[in-house]
């Protein structure tokens, strides 16, 4: 895991100076590769529903990964990740069902559209102050919700869009739950590696510099506005990609999973998993998406429990579960690696 450079990183701790080094980062890549391999075979014998839940986990992880870039690396609050996901899902659904465009083109267009909208929203907001983005995205979230519900001719209103076809892969039909799951694994892996590469690149370093010390970053010649805007737009594009996968996975979409509450929920997943950790989103989505499916008896109480746990985590360990694991690992190895 790439550890977020916390304040104590500045102190001369022999372990922490090594932690974000090359070895650890390759560990992240390795974890991704092994995880993808396991998930490729995991659903065998799990049944349709179990497979579906695993696929859903990965799809949500993509959206959370994007938000992690926005929040965890660039330090921006976006309250529209679910709305961006909705934009992607509806774009894909409309393009594939009404216009017969191939899923791959729709996928690319969904990402492109959400990226462009991200730029359009972020530009005026970030011109002023970083936290204005929160209010602009809040407003955008409501606007998308209104459009999804009211523009029946396009979105089907509250009835949504059904019969969304799953794509095929070079002639191989992906209609089955397992086949489509494997497709989702591949796409998730590609997107995760792309993000991993981005974070390691000078661009990614600039994002982290922004979060840690924007004034210093600016004084070092980083165009802070351009980079924050870019981080937000890429984060939003990931929501668009997630939406493009979500539509064919569920095969039916209506406005409810793209509401403002869902955007809040996605933010909580980022924090629960560990903001600023590349693998954090997978943990966060596991807690936010998979666990409630297993704990069905808890019903909507689960949402309350999850939110309460996140609040406790924020008090005890703002680095989330990833941070806790890192602390635990430091304890086991007997070294002082405590983040704070």
């Amino acid at each position: 895991m790439t550890a977020p450079a916390t304040r104590s990183d500045l102190s001369p701790s022999p372990r922490l100076t090594r932690l974000p080094g090359l070895g650890m980062i390759d560990g992240t890549f390795l974890t991704l590769a092994i995880g993808a391999a396991i998930l490729w075979f995991a659903p065998v014998g799990m049944g349709r529903y179990g497979t579906y839940v695993l696929s859903l986990w990965l799809v949500m992880s993509i959206a959370v990964m994007g938000l992690n870039l926005t929040l965890g690396y660039a330090g921006l609050k976006s309250l529209a990740q679910a709305a961006f996901m909705g934009l992607g899902a509806y774009t894909t659904a409309i393009l594939t069902t009404k216009f017969g465009i191939s899923w791959y083109a729709a996928f690319a267009l969904s990402g492109l559209l959400t990226f462009a909208v991200g730029i359009l929203l972020g530009f005026p907001a970030l011109r002023v102050k970083a936290h204005y983005l929160a209010f602009v995205t809040l407003a955008f979230s409501t606007l998308i919700w209104l459009i999804l519900r009211n523009e029946q001719w396009l979105t089907g209103g509250v009835f949504g869009i059904s019969n969304i076809n799953r794509p095929d892969f070079f002639g191989i039909k992906l209609f089955g739950a397992l086949e489509f799951h494997r497709f989702v694994v591949v796409v998730t892996f590609i997107l995760a590696v792309a993000l991993w590469w981005l974070i390691r690149s000078p661009w990614g370093r600039a994002f982290t510099a922004l979060r840690e010390n924007p004034i210093r970053a600016a004084s070092l010649g980083i165009d802070t506005r351009a980079y924050t805007l870019l981080a937000f737009a890429i984060g939003s594009a990931y929501a668009g990609f997630a939406g493009a996968l979500y539509a064919p996975l569920v095969e039916f979409i209506d406005p409810s999973p793209f509401s403002l509450s869902q955007s809040f929920f996605l933010l909580l997943m980022v924090v629960a998993g560990g903001a600023g950790y590349l693998l954090g989103p997978f943990v966060g989505a596991l807690l936010g998406v998979v666990l409630p499916e297993w704990l069905r008896f808890a019903g909507s109480l689960y949402l309350i429990i999850f939110a309460a746990i996140v609040m406790l985590l924020l008090i005890a360990c703002p680095q989330g579960v990833s941070g806790l694991m890192e602390r635990g690992w430091a304890k086991i190895t007997g070294k002082r690696g405590d983040a704070r």
Binding site: H131, L303, A307, A308, V310, L314
Partner: peptide, 13 residues
Amino acid sequence: LPLAIATMALSII
């Protein structure tokens, strides 16, 4: 930032 997110959690609760 964590505080703002905590208030979102509070709103859900």
